[in-house]
């Protein structure tokens, strides 16, 4: 089973509900062992895409292969190789955390040890508590624990850390890093860009049902989007900015021009992933879909007849 074929392969995926096109020609692939983050605003088509890959939804067009199988035809053996953490929790309020995990572990051919998963998910103190009595964040940990109990080859995480406090989020990240180290392939959607940066090897940004950029997280948006800005306050109290790929040189010249004096409020700002992301998404919303930069990395599938994207809830 040592294949180099991608674990997930999506080609020109389309999905429409009634007359609304929720996903309009998305293509990407995820290699074995890779963590791929799918980013995008609410209603952009992230969850629709992920649910098609999970086998929950049928697609309207395009080709999809997950672990070498079309999710539409995925049987129980195929499901046994997946771990799914849905965006919304499933209730099993009257079962305790341990009971629920032990029960689910029984579904899989080689599950993880229940106690190990409880510890890894940070649920030790709540192991004997009924799920219905847990807080939202704790319940989310149960969702994650249920997603990994079957020792999945491919793990889907749809906004997994919603409702987590910062400490829980860091705990979750180390749990995911452990899974990555074991070779688990992960598809993650998140609204937290620091989370994507922490965990993701590559990311794709979806807006308006289209993939507007894809690449490794430090390359998203291209070099232009990452040009640093030198900012300072000049002698008249005005804020000055200069975009430059050589910020040290700009600062050195600035100091020289001030005869060695310290420039007031000097900053060198490198656009964060969040800045890059926001500029990409806003850029996409501002321009007619299919033209210009949109879908530039997406095998050039441009359709000039497409209307300006309006936020549509999937």
């Amino acid at each position: 089973m040592t294949t180099t074929a991608p674990v997930v392969q999506v080609r020109d995926l389309q999905k429409s509900y009634g007359g609304v096109e929720a996903v309009r020609g998305v293509s990407f692939s995820i290699a074995a062992g890779e963590t791929f983050a799918l980013l995008g605003p609410n209603g952009a088509g992230k969850s629709t895409t992920i649910e098609i890959l999970e086998g929950y939804r049928d697609r309207s067009g395009g080709e999809v292969s997950v672990l070498g199988i079309d999710p539409h035809r995925g049987g129980l053996d195929w499901k046994a190789r997946l771990g799914i953490v849905l965006q919304t929790s499933g209730e099993s309020g009257n079962a305790t955390v341990t009971e629920l995990l032990r029960h689910f572990a029984g579904f899989y051919p080689h599950p993880r040890d229940v106690d190990e998963v409880i510890d890894a998910a940070g649920l030790r103190e709540k192991a004997k508590t009924r799920v219905g009595k847990l807080s939202g964040g704790q319940r989310r940990r149960v969702d994650v624990a249920l997603g990994i109990i079957g020792r999945p080859e491919l793990l889907f995480l749809d906004e997994p850390t919603t409702g987590f406090d910062p400490e829980a989020r860091h705990q979750f990240w180390s749990l995911i890093r452990g899974l990555k180290a074991e070779g688990t392939t992960i598809l993650l959607t998140t609204h937290y860009l620091d989370e994507a940066a922490q965990l993701g090897d590559r990311a794709g940004i979806i807006a308006g049902g289209q993939l507007i950029d894809i690449g490794s997280l430090d390359k998203l948006g291209g070099a232009d989007a990452r040009v640093p800005v030198v900012r300072w306050r000049d002698g008249n109290g005005l804020v000055r900015e200069e975009r430059t790929s050589r910020p040290a040189q700009v600062v050195a010249e600035l100091v020289r021009s001030l005869n060695g004096a310290e420039p007031a409020d000097l900053e060198v700002i490198r656009p964060s992933l969040e800045d890059v992301y926001l500029s990409l998404v806003r850029g996409h919303e501002a321009m007619p879909a299919g033209s210009g930069a949109a879908a530039s990395t997406n095998e050039g599938r441009s359709d000039p007849s497409r209307r300006i994207y309006k936020d549509v809830r999937a």
Partner: peptide, 14 residues
Amino acid sequence: SDGTLKRLGGTPLS
């Protein structure tokens, strides 16, 4: 309606 079935549907439970 509470998501229990959806969750089970994603597992290898027949």
